[in-house]
Amino acid sequence: MPTSTVFTLIKQLLTRKATNPFPVKYTPKNMHAAAELIESGKLEINPPVEIPPDYRGKLKYDVDCCIGCKLCLKVCPSEALAFKPEEKKVKHYVARCTFCGQCANICPKSCFELTEEFLIAGTDKYADELVLNP
């Protein structure tokens, strides 16, 4: 048996594990109760992994600066943007977004910005927080 491998294995048995831990060790029976416990500070959770400096997270859309030029619609690969003709603004479906940031690049007024927010999972893709400028 290869001895160096066994040596490494025994070392790994005793050192810190490489797996990133879940926020809580096991899934709580009641999510809402757990969330309340966390908010009141009674339950400690493992913090999420650090994100890099120029992270591509959920888009931020500045409605007021938008001039309705529709250029962002031309480059959005997943067609996550929809034009609202009556307002002359766009609507953004976060659930469809691929976070490529091409809209932020092409926007002449820089109305789009990639934020560092990434905890955007939800059960309803048309929920208020998952549609920008609904």
């Binding site: 048995l13 594990k17 797996t19």
Partner: peptide, 13 residues
Amino acid sequence: KITAMMQSRIGPP
């Protein structure tokens, strides 16, 4: 559990 820990994983309970 021990196998997982030797492979630097947390492993199942």
